[in-house]
Amino acid sequence: MVVKIKRITFIILNTGFKKYNQALVKVYDTCNNLIYHEETYNGRLDLLLKEKDVYKVEIIKNNSIIKSSIYVVKDKYIFSFSRTITFLLRDANYYNLPIKKGEIILWQK
């Protein structure tokens, strides 16, 4: 069986410039062997992985971690760290009157 190696790029959003404030990327195969253990540069990392194979990915930056799995078919995989977002909810008819209690629900499209 011919194994095709594919060159892919990881793009990690919310990282710094060049080598500053970058993320550490770890890639494991399905047997949990560590295949890659490298830092991004400008938020990017190029890798050579087996096409149509599954890998586990860990991306670590400061105290945050993204854990994901990829199936190698695309050229580019984009990852984004979450951050704290503040939501303000006011009464539409009484300018700036804060809503005492309730919930806003956000659904990813």
């Binding site: 919310n14 984004s80 499209k109």
Partner: peptide, 28 residues
């Protein structure tokens, strides 16, 4: 996937990634 933001006195916070979300509300 849904993220619930609890609002107390007009303010709430949540951990979110950059993306576009549909918004619904549950405010008595």
């Amino acid at each position: 996937m849904a993220k619930i933001i609890n609002i107390i006195d007009g303010t709430g916070t949540g951990e979110l990634i950059n993306d576009t979300y549909t918004v619904t509300a549950s405010v008595p």
